[in-house]
């Protein structure tokens, strides 16, 4: 049992959400450290010193040659054994935005199909490509979560608002049966939904129009997990709504938040629960 889970927040090479990603883990009882990728590659640090790994958003290597590709390669070639051991040890990993792209390009997401050896095999099975609009955009979206997902990060969360900030967020798989397999195992963890739908009833496979789905993602997918539920990635930025004052409706007094008072009193934002889930999971299981 660990009291204060240690969280490694990667940075370097153009990752740029490292400060706020560290902050949200600290707010919910983790002890987060920004660690340069090269510290793990050079052996100055080892992943096994940590309980949780976060790959934050950013523009690693400028997203040239495809978002997340080059950082994904560095990790795939140099951190293969450490990442394998990390998941084998039952430790959670999250990738947000560029971090999600990195996890997809390394093959950590969606990972081996359910029923097979669930540990990372570093085979790329999906991709994130240019938004149908052709534009990078920062806009707020509404997300809904699959309540049956094995994902340890999203337990108990139904719906949140948060911003997307990307130009390459369209999730694609080479064929429909791949989707069906992920769906059957509830790995299509989070989708873009129409905020006008009832809470809990927003998820649909039918493509939503822009801007409800900001990127044309297949089946409106915003994020997926691996078959263990430990590794989770999503394009939107839940860390960007850690406080209600960051929600665009806060001057209208209608910014949503948790029902019970959180770490910021009545000002806790909806996004923080994702990070609290992982910290609580680590406390209970590691």
């Amino acid at each position: 049992m660990v009291d204060t889970p240690k969280v490694a927040v990667l940075f370097g090479f153009g990752i740029n959400c490292d400060h706020e990603t560290k902050a949200v883990f600290d707010l919910v009882g983790g002890q987060a450290t920004r660690v340069h990728v090269n510290h793990f590659i050079n052996g100055n640090h080892s992943l096994d010193e940590f309980h949780i790994l976060a790959v934050p958003g950013g523009f690693s290597f400028g997203d040239h040659l495809g978002s997340g590709r080059l950082l994904g390669n560095r990790m795939r070639f140099a951190l293969r054994d450490q990442l394998h051991a990390f998941v084998a040890a039952g430790k959670p990993i999250i990738g947000i935005c560029n971090g999600f792209q990195v996890l997809v390009k390394t093959g950590l997401l969606p990972g081996p199909a359910a029923g097979q050896d669930p540990l990372p095999d570093f085979v790329q099975r999906a991709s994130l490509t240019l938004n149908d609009s052709g534009r990078y955009e920062d806009r707020w979206v509404t997300l809904e979560f699959d309540s049956n997902s094995p994902c340890i990060w999203t337990k108990g969360i139904t719906r949140i608002d948060c911003p997307v900030r990307h130009g390459e967020g369209k999730f694609v798989l080479p064929d429909n049966t791949d989707f069906d397999m992920l769906a059957a195992n509830n790995q299509l963890t989070v989708r873009y939904v129409d905020p006008a739908t009832e809470n809990g009833e927003g998820i649909t496979d039918e493509l939503l129009p822009f801007p409800l789905s900001p990127n044309g993602s297949m089946r409106n997918i915003a994020g997926v997990c691996d078959s263990t539920g430990l590794v989770f990635g999503l394009m939107p930025h839940p860390e960007a709504v850690y406080a209600k004052w960051l929600h665009p409706d806060h001057t209208r007094d209608t910014a949503p938040g948790p029902e019970s008072s959180g770490v910021l009193g009545e000002w806790e934002g909806e996004g923080l629960q994702i990070f609290r889930n992982a910290v609580d999971y680590a406390k209970a299981n590691l």
Partner: peptide, 11 residues
């Protein structure tokens, strides 16, 4: 809207 106006989670 094509500028990121929210990175750093402070806006």
């Amino acid at each position: 809207r094509q500028y990121d106006h929210e990175v750093i989670a402070q806006t």
